[in-house]
Design a protein around this nucleic acid. Sequence first.
RNA 1: GGGCGCUUAGCUCAGUUGGCUAGAGCAUCUCGUUUACACCGAGGAGGCCAGGGGUUCGAGUCCCUUAGCGCCCACCA
Length: 710
Amino acid sequence: MINDKYLKPYNHADYEDNIYKTWNDSGYFNPDNLPGEREETFSIILPPPNANGNLHAGHGSDFVLKDIMARYHRMLGKKTLMIPGADHAGFETQGVYEKKLQKEGRSRFGMNRQELYDEIYDFVMEHKGNMEEQVKRLGTSCDWSRNTFTLQPNIVSKVENTFMQMYEDGMIYRGKRSIHWNPKFKTSLADIETKFEDRTEPFYYFQYGPFEIATSRPETKFGDKYVVMHPDDKRYSKYKEGDTFEAEWINGKVTATILKDEVIDMEFGTGVMTITPWHDLTDFEIAERHNLEYEQIIDLDGKLMDIAEEFAGQKVHIARPEVVKKLQKKGLVTKIEEKHTHAVRICERTGVILEPQLMDQWFVKMKPLTQMALKALDEKKLYFVSEQFEKTFRHWMENPIDWNISRQIVWGIQIPAWFKNKGKENEEIKVQKEKPNGDGWIQDTDTFDTWFSSGQWPLLTLGFPDGKDFKTFYPTTVMETGRDLIFKWVPRMIMFGLYLAKDVPFKDIYLHGMVLDGKGVKMSKSKGNTLSPIDLGDEFGMDATRMSFVIGNTPGRDMPLPVDKVRGYKKFSNKIWNIARFIYENTDGFDYQNFDTSKLTETENIIIKEVKNIKLEVGKNIEDYKLYMGAEDAYHYVWHTLADKILEESKEALGNKTTAEDKKNKQYMLLTIFGEILKMLHPFMPFITEEIWSDFPIENKDLLMVESWN
RNA sequence: GGGCGCUUAGCUCAGUUGGCUAGAGCAUCUCGUUUACACCGAGGAGGCCAGGGGUUCGAGUCCCUUAGCGCCCACCA
């Protein structure tokens, strides 16, 4: 008799959790337990989601696309491994936690290091578990026995090893460089963690000795004693490099020196500027080229220092109008353009205006690493599925900027370096894990940039250098991730892989676009237009949600996700359910396994052959990274060929209106086709297909997730 | 300033190496309750594939160009 469950509409909530548990308990998520002999491997590293919150729509694409690939290749008979993990997400997590502290009226300043670390650790562990439950809800077929967290001791140890090796190899140096300083969160940031925002502010013209200079930041000008102009600027040809002059300035007379440098834009402002090397990258580079001295004007809290005299201790934005007022009194202001729009560098995560500062920091020399990446690209060891990204990647690799890897936060892996103060500005450095012998050694309080550890993710999760998984699964088959990570994550993994393991960490690079809201607008918490894949799963079923994330998701292109789309695939789930009901009802008692297939008519054989062809086609689309097309073809066949045509046309025979033999043929044919479409749909819609497969009339069958695709 | 990409049915988008009488989903219109499913079926309407030029037997697809839109990168004081 047909199982009663088919007599009512499909209700995903009744099945999904149990099915995931069955898969997980089967052990098949672990490639070591898969049935049969499996030579070929398929491996994919899951991006470790930040362990500080919930999954968002972007994670939907992330996990669904990868899981479709993994499930397909597992069914193809490959030794398939998906490794889950979590990233401590240093700066971001600490930022989230600091907001929490703020709400509680507390602050990280004043807490000791260990205390703060422990609190964040507990906070993250709580959310990490939550996040993992959500990854499971999506149906992700990853091996939880290999779950990895960036701050677990063996991972920390390996990250430290990498740093020490790079230091020994001369790939890492410590130096005073202009870095982007976040004065509110008190940490430096790498270039890619910053962005520009247009601000409209007054633009001031001042008389500085014989010159008129223009600036948008008068409050930094206290220590300026060089004026710079373009060597070809005819207006200033009578001034020679190295000439000095006296100028009345903010706090009295200064002696200034003339410099010529080609970075000066003759068209901009007056073509003359003064420089503040400590707080401006361009100025710093000029100072370096001309071997100049420089001094700090603004402290790490964003306040003016003693050099500002009467303004000392004021925050920069407070001091600015005051400085201008004073200059006005002195008659040194020649012009003010009220509305000058220029780009201000801000912190990508917190929106805080960044202050360039010169600080001692750890840097990775990028040039040798990017050269390795370019070589791998030229040798075709890397393949970008959406080829427009290859150009972007190449461009970035050809113009590297040394990477600042130290962060002044506690939430991360502390840098294994020790300092001993030997007088002013003179310290001895040792790079090692343990405290060196002798007195006076203090460990660097900085931690690594998060991307320093996550950039090694394929190596770390597979147990480089001597782990069994590393030997079996490296390089991994494909890196599938969001296109926004082409600068942040992807190149770092490639460079670390090439540097440490002498081989690329993955062959194919599939970058998907961003998930937008139903109107095509970027989702953001502030706009309130975010969608959670978990909520969608609750309402429409995870299979329907997965279909919404794959159909229309072409490589590299952004994809709007209207809720109606998900609703549409919920209908599809129900359609499949009803097809099952119809077929199971009409084949009740039919001995499928012992049917003599030689009795099938030619037409029936053709119909069976057709579904097998469609399935091969769907598989080929998955292999070619056209997952959206595979899903669409499968959908279309099931609904408009199987349900609308084949089922309808078989009703006559099934209703005993023809011959008994014809009926048996049709029963066999329908079950065969149905078995094929369950396999074909499984990578996309794993829950409902697994559930229906459990009633398929074959004895001693295994789970659908390990059934053979062919 | 540099780079990448987009413009196809009312809406959201597919359209692989040029062969298309240009497709899908949603929306819309007409009809229909028949061994599953109204979370359904049958049928229909709807497009000079952004504009212009070129290559070709043949162009939505390749080249040039114009216009509009989007994203990324960048030290304009």
